[in-house]
Computed example of a mutant assay.
Amino acid sequence: MFLLFSVIPVLEIYLFVLVGERIGALNTIGIVILTAIGGAWLARSQGTLVLSRIRSNLAAGIPPGEDMLEGALILVAGLVLLTPGFFTDAIGFVLLIPATRARLRVWLGRKFREWTAGGKVTIIRR
């Protein structure tokens, strides 16, 4: 958490200064605003598709586990895209690429299974 709240803001400030020196302050601000608007639109459209898929799968009796994780990744992408900065925008846009999201979903699923199998999490069943 220390890394998240200390290193990333410093990196973002460094990138703002670097880009601002090259293209100017107003152009830098414009890019940040455009990436936030474009990223929010992309996240919303992809999130709507996933939500539609979840609804149709639920209607068919199919558990929405993977789709729920995909929706969560799209939500994270949208949140980091709304955060001003070039590094966070890059992370957000990478998360909006379906192939990248699929690989991350598989990796997270594997890590979750390892975590729960290792006795770190107790799942209560009724």
Rank of each mutant, 00 (worst) to 15 (best):
residue 1 M to T: 15
residue 1 M to W: 08
residue 3 L to I: 13
residue 4 L to K: 13
residue 9 P to T: 03
residue 10 V to S: 13
residue 10 V to N: 09
residue 10 V to I: 12
residue 11 L to H: 03
residue 12 E to R: 10
residue 12 E to V: 00
residue 12 E to A: 05
residue 12 E to Q: 08
residue 13 I to S: 13
residue 14 Y to S: 14
residue 16 F to C: 01
residue 16 F to Y: 12
residue 17 V to R: 05
residue 19 V to N: 09
residue 21 E to Y: 12
residue 23 I to F: 07
residue 23 I to Y: 11
residue 25 A to Q: 13
residue 25 A to D: 10
residue 26 L to K: 15
residue 27 N to Y: 11
residue 27 N to K: 15
residue 27 N to G: 14
residue 28 T to Q: 01
residue 29 I to Y: 15
residue 29 I to D: 05
residue 35 T to M: 07
residue 35 T to Y: 08
residue 35 T to G: 00
residue 36 A to Y: 03
residue 37 I to D: 05
residue 37 I to F: 10
residue 42 L to E: 05
residue 42 L to Y: 10
residue 43 A to Y: 07
residue 43 A to E: 03
residue 44 R to C: 04
residue 47 G to A: 03
residue 47 G to R: 04
residue 48 T to K: 15
residue 50 V to F: 03
residue 53 R to E: 15
residue 54 I to E: 02
residue 58 L to Y: 07
residue 59 A to I: 01
residue 59 A to D: 11
residue 63 P to Y: 04
residue 63 P to A: 14
residue 64 P to F: 06
residue 65 G to H: 14
residue 66 E to Q: 13
residue 67 D to M: 14
residue 69 L to R: 15
residue 70 E to N: 13
residue 70 E to G: 14
residue 74 I to P: 05
residue 75 L to S: 11
residue 75 L to T: 14
residue 77 A to H: 11
residue 78 G to P: 00
residue 78 G to M: 02
residue 80 V to H: 10
residue 82 L to H: 06
residue 83 T to F: 11
residue 83 T to Y: 12
residue 84 P to G: 11
residue 87 F to C: 02
residue 88 T to P: 06
residue 90 A to W: 00
residue 90 A to P: 01
residue 90 A to Q: 02
residue 91 I to T: 10
residue 92 G to H: 06
residue 93 F to N: 06
residue 94 V to Q: 09
residue 94 V to P: 00
residue 95 L to D: 01
residue 95 L to C: 09
residue 96 L to G: 11
residue 97 I to H: 12
residue 97 I to L: 03
residue 99 A to T: 09
residue 99 A to W: 06
residue 101 R to E: 02
residue 102 A to W: 05
residue 102 A to V: 04
residue 103 R to S: 13
residue 104 L to V: 14
residue 105 R to M: 04
residue 105 R to A: 15
residue 106 V to P: 02
residue 107 W to R: 13
residue 107 W to H: 10
residue 108 L to P: 06
residue 109 G to H: 08
residue 109 G to L: 01
residue 110 R to I: 00
residue 113 R to H: 10
residue 116 T to M: 05
residue 116 T to S: 15
residue 116 T to H: 12
residue 117 A to D: 13
residue 117 A to E: 10
residue 118 G to R: 07
residue 118 G to H: 09
residue 121 V to R: 13
residue 122 T to Y: 04
residue 122 T to I: 01
residue 123 I to P: 11
residue 124 I to V: 09
residue 124 I to N: 13
